[in-house]
Design a protein around this nucleic acid. Structure first.
Lengths: 231, 231
DNA sequence: TGTTGTGATCTGTGATCACAGATATCTTGT
DNA sequence: ACAAGATATCTGTGATCACAGATCACAACA
């Protein structure tokens, strides 16, 4: 299982409180536990995390630097609202970049990473038709499959860029997916994943890119159809 | 002229001291004024910028979050050393992403942005064969040309990703370019730029992508040839 | 009833202090 | 002369405080 957290937080012997706050906040964001538009008070987070404001401030500023949070002119940090325009922009870039990562994964794959990808795919497929209360698990497994593929591209730079993108769309993607478990039952995601795995195994770069692109595009289309985006 | 600074710093009525410190530090990094491996003391920067440690800490943590700085285990922040492996990784990703941005610029161009791009190209071309002491200006104009193109892709997401990449590769690129003004005289960069401008004007997406990719690749090859990368 | 003004409260920002660990410098031993 | 240990200095980290601006709640007026 691949973690989507930055390598530094994994490697540091003693993660600072700032790192820990960053990890916890990232988790809340990427799993859609904090809704877009919601205001986060540094003081409240500090009391929740049982640390002082300082580490939380560092975590917030790091997340704001990558666009995962927004600091309004002089009032609390907020989870950025996702309007249709911004959502389409990010989706367009995601298709290009994550598609490239999938193609690189197909080009550079080896036995070990391929095994990890296949395991992640199987785990996700098992949850097809899952009960609503298992959606959180499905969200996590979907994420793990995607990042297993992206890790196979063996490019720290690319991986970090994709992680940043997911941090931005996570709130929308997962919030909506949890409220609409029926999308998973249609098997669109599972089908794309299986196609991608086969393509990576065969070293078919174009097919791998297409499969991931279709997965992203169909999920995005579903989200847009829900009409929950602002403006 | 397009600024490569994040939009928030431009829009904020009263940029905070943290923002100002971020801008100043970014400038030092992207212009190659701070050499890779160099250690930055938060306290020293604070006295230099005539502020307290707090805003500098925020700036450093923001830059560290995007990989432009590195925080060692428990000692001063450093400009990340650029070894060959990392340099090639970033270059591979840059060719893909900045190439895509150039293609999008060719697809979506309009009269106003095209005029900006052409102006930036002319300004850079004028400095061909510049004297060594003008290299700083050449570095800046090259940067402005590239970001004029990337701005024409009209994708804030893409623009921010590219800005982050430049922040990482800037120290090496510009440090080396300033010490080797002869590369500019060969006209490789100018040629690529002119090809790119023509392609964008004609709406030839593939040609625009190729031109930018060649520009990046040839500059990277030159840097690697200098043998100044670590390890 | 609707609007406006005014004070209370909450916000992020920035400065300062205490602290522990790493590093550098000097001293002491052989 | 050189290595080893002790001390002094410098480092980032985190907590706390002061402050100004934004927001909210409520009351007074129209």
């Amino acid at each position: 299982m691949k973690s989507i957290l930055p390598s530094e937080t994994r490697l540091l012997p003693q993660p600072t409180l700032g790192d820990q706050a960053y990890v916890r906040l990232s988790g809340l964001l990427i799993s859609g536990r904090i809704a877009p538009g919601e205001r986060l008070s540094i003081r409240d987070l500090a009391t929740t995390f049982e640390v002082s404001m300082t580490p939380v401030r560092e975590a917030v500023s790091r997340l704001a630097a990558t666009g995962a949070l927004e600091v309004t002119r002089n009032r609390a940090a907020t989870v950025p609202l996702m309007n249709v325009q911004r959502f389409r922009d990010i989706t367009r870039v995601r298709i290009q970049i994550e598609g490239f990562a999938a193609a690189e994964a197909a080009r550079l794959r080896d036995a070990a990473t391929l095994a990890e990808i296949e395991a992640a795919e199987r785990a996700f497929r098992k949850l097809q038709g899952a009960r609503p209360h298992e959606m959180a698990k499905a969200v996590q497994l979907n994420q793990e499959f995607h990042f297993a593929v992206y890790a196979a591209a063996t490019s720290p730079t690319l991986f970090e860029i994709i992680r940043t993108l997911w941090l931005q769309v996570g709130p929308i993607l997962n919030l909506d997916l949890r409220e609409n478990p029926e999308r998973l039952e249609q098997g669109e995601a599972v089908g794309c994943h299986q196609t991608a795995v086969a393509a990576i195994k065969n070293g078919d770069t174009d097919c791998a890119r297409e499969a991931i692109a279709r997965d992203i595009a169909s999920a995005a289309a579903f989200i847009e159809g829900q009409g929950k985006l602002s403006e």
